[in-house]
Every structure is written in structure tokens, then in C-alpha cells.
Deep mutational scan, measured.
Amino acid sequence: MDLSALRVEEVQNVINAMQKILECPICLELIKEPVSTKCDHIFCKFCMLKLLNQKKGPSQCPLCKNDITKRSLQESTRFSQLVEELLKIICAFQLDTGLEYANSYNFAKKENNSPEHLKDEVSIIQSMGYRNRAKRLLQSEPENPSLQETSLSVQLSNLGTVRTLRTKQRIQPQKTSVYIELGSDSSEDTVNKATYCSVGDQELLQITPQGTRDEISLDSAKKAACEFSETDVTNTEHHQPSNNDLNTTEKRAAERHPEKYQGSSVSNLHVEPCGTNTHASSLQHENSSLLLTKDRMNVEKAEFCNKSKQPGLARSQHNRWAGSKETCNDRRTPSTEKKVDLNADPLCERKEWNKQKLPCSENPRDTEDVPWITLNSSIQKVNEWFSRSDELLGSDDSHDGESESNAKVADVLDVLNEVDEYSGSSEKIDLLASDPHEALICKSERVHSKSVESNIEDKIFGKTYRKKASLPNLSHVTENLIIGAFVTEPQIIQERPLTNKLKRKRRPTSGL
């Protein structure tokens, strides 16, 4: 017993010596996670971090007073192994002897410093981030199933929210409404489509400006004509009531908005009720001829604005009016007729031209339509002016008669200019590109209106002035400009410049 007691005391002394060697000089306990400095002193990692955080910048070693920084600290694995072995020896000594260790306080702390507990403390002390800490805590505590279930439920809930957000973003663009038309193969669909197009076009005519009305009406008319041609002859009974509906809707729209509806009346003529396609083609032919005449008058307007600064050229074209007008009339009417003589009366030419125009518009179905009313009214106005011209010709002399006839021709041009508003800008460009020769010939008609105004002003003063002067240069210039014009009389060319000069002198006297 005595020997055993001596041996136990010796073992205890050895353990105490080893414990003092492996103590931390700051906390005076076994080193936890030993860290060595540049001066080869060993301290606990937790104690050194606490010391360095007390001051900004480098701190001093507690043993040798040298500078220490966080970067200079290094882990010493050898001392950590020695500490672990010492703890194992102490545990074995207690089991063999059955005696508690003399320094129970220190031993209890040593026992608490088992490797499992050290790992837990290291995970908390090290600044490795929240995710690494959570992982280490889960690994160190596998015995708690409640914690695992809560963490898994949190992760699953987070994943569910992310997935639901993604699915919502994908589903939202798919919620856009999609309209699908289910059509049938019955023959009544074509008639319904035609009526739908006509009503939609009328609404567009009321909303859209004048520049786009003609294009819309032309497209709708083409669509309706194609649909009529596709149907068989057996379905004509269905077409006639639908066309009557079209007429009623167009008349109502014309009564409500007459000014807006006139812009599309000329282009919509071939959508009118037709028994066969031949009647629609004839109407299209007549409309094309009318559009040609209207576009020519538009060309004359532009030329008149350009040549208004040259009064000499405008005056020299006075007698070329009849010849150029004959050529335009021959090209406007498709019928083959002989040219009228140069010395014939211009009023007779106008009456013949009106007689040619009237039969074209005397179809029984055309008179029933609303768009032809505008053309009939313009023709009636022309006839009224010609009836007035006959009365004026009986009273005035030959020279005054010529000037009045020219004035009436200008009035006719004004009437025809009203129809110019109905034609589109695209048709003007096509006419100029296809028929430049006709445009040059028809330019002379509009330029002549300037000389007509001068004659009217001469009649106000009650006299006409003449001068025997020749202007050969002007006649040559005008002959080169206009290709299809005829030779003019030299006496009238000489008379016109004198009248304008005298007018300039006598205007201030009349004002006084």
C-alpha cells in the first residue's frame, strides 16, 4: 500500500509539471487552440484576439514586449497534440486509482476541453461567416432531431417561395387574352364579311383624315369586289339584299356627314349593287376616265402658280386654248370622233363635250346612286353658264364675245376644280409618270385663266386698248415650251401688254 501511494504521488507531480508547461500565460489554463508568435511564445487563440482587439494597430507580447499583429500569429499543431495527450492521461489516472485529481477545478476545466467541445467553440470564435457556423452547429449536434426538422422546413419554405415567384413570372405573360375566330364554310359568310367591311370603312371615314380616306375606301372596294366574284351565280339572291343594306348604310352616312363622305364616293362606285361583274367593270372604266381629267386639272394648277410671274407667256397662250382643249377632250372620251376645226366657235365645242359626257352618266342604276348626284349638279351648273353665254354673245361685239367665252371657260374650270378634291395624291404621281406629254398640253388651259381676268378688268373701264407692237421672242419661247399647242394670231399678242400698262397708270386715278 505504501509503495502504491508513493507511485501515485509521483504520477500526480509529473502531471502537474506537464500542466504548468502547457498553461497559457494569460488565462493560466491549458492552452486552447495554441497560437505561436514571432517571438516563439505560445498563447491561446481566444486570449490573443481579445488582446489585439483592445487597441488599434499592433499590440505588445505580454512576455517579451514585442509587437504582435493578427497576421504574425501562427497555429502550432504540436502543442495541440500534447494537450490532447495530457487530458487522456489524466482521465486514465482517475480510472485506475479511483481518486480524484488534486486540482479539481483545473481538471474539471480540462475535462470540459474535450475535442468535441473544442470544435464547437472554434466554430463560434472564428469569423467564418453565418453559413459556415450553421453547418458546423448542425454537424456538432446530430442528436437534436427537432433542430434538423426546423432547419429543413425553413430551407424548403425558402425554396418554395423562390419557385413560386419564378412560376408566377412565367405564367403572367401567358394570361394575355387570345381571340380565335371559328369560321364556317357556308355561303352566307361572304355576304356577312362584305357588310362588315362596308360598315367598318364608314366608321374609318368618319375618323380618319382626308388623305387616308381614299386609300381605305379603295382597299375595301377591292375586297368586296373579290368576294362578289368568288361566289357562284346561284347565290345572287343572297347578294341582292346585302347590297341593298350597303346602299342604305352609305346613304345614311352621306346624310350625316356629306363633306366627309364625298371624298370616298368616287372610289367606292364599283361596290354599288350589281347584278353581274360586267356592270362593275364598266363603272370602273368610267371612274378611271374621270380621275384622269381631274388629275390633269391639278397639274394645271401647279403650272399656273409657276407661270404667274410671267405675264407675257400667259398672254401669248390665249389663242392656243381651243387647240389644246380639243386634244384633251379627244383623250378624255374613249369614243372615236373627228377633231373640230380651228376656226369653230369654242362654245360649240363645249356643248358637244357636254353631250358626250351626259350619255356616260345616263345609266338607270347610276342615277339612283348618291355619288353621281355631285356630277349631275356640276353638269347642270355648266349648262347654266353656257345659256348665259349665249345671251352675252348677242349683245357684245366679236372681240368682247371672245373674252366672255374665255371667262366662261374659266368658270367651267372652277367647277371642275371642285372635283379635284376627290382624287388622291398617289394617283397624281402615277398620271405624271405615265403621261407626261398630256400633262404639258393640259398646262396651257390653266395658264389661260390669267388672260381671262385681264379681259374682265378691261370691260370694267369700258374700253380695250391696242398697240401695234411685235414680240417675236415671246412667241418662239412659248412654242418651244408647249409641244401640242397651235400657232397664235400676232394681233392679239400685241394687244395684251398695252392693256396691263394702261391699267397700272389709271388705277390711282380711279381711286381718287
Rank of each mutant, 00 (worst) to 15 (best):
T37K: 00
R71M: 15
L51Q: 10
L82V: 10
P115Q: 08
Q74A: 13
N106S: 03
E100T: 06
N132F: 01
S151F: 05
R71W: 12
A108S: 10
L95V: 15
R170K: 03
R136V: 03
V191G: 09
C39F: 00
M128L: 07
Q139E: 14
I31S: 15
D120W: 15
V178S: 12
I68D: 01
R133S: 11
I15D: 04
Q155K: 09
S146Q: 14
E33R: 13
M18F: 01
K50G: 14
K45L: 06
I15P: 00
P34Q: 03
E143H: 06
I26L: 13
E116N: 01
E141A: 07
F46C: 14
N235G: 14
D2G: 09
N132Y: 02
R163K: 09
E121V: 02
I42G: 02
Q139V: 08
N16H: 14
R71A: 07
S104Q: 04
Q169Y: 11
F79D: 15
C44Y: 15
G98I: 00
S186T: 13
I31K: 01
A5W: 09
C64T: 00
A5D: 03
D2A: 14
Y179T: 12
V35A: 15
R71K: 14
N158Y: 14
E149A: 08
D185K: 10
S123G: 09
Q172K: 04
H239A: 00
I26V: 07
C27P: 00
Y179K: 12
S114D: 14
K55M: 07
N103M: 08
L99P: 01
E10G: 04
L138R: 10
Q81I: 05
Q155W: 11
N158R: 05
D67A: 05
E121R: 07
S59K: 03
D189S: 13
L73P: 14
N106C: 04
L51D: 01
H117E: 10
A5V: 09
Q172A: 04
R170Q: 04
A17R: 11
D185M: 15
N103V: 11
T164Q: 03
Q60M: 11
S4V: 02
M48V: 04
C39R: 00
K65M: 14
Y101L: 08
M128R: 04
L156V: 04
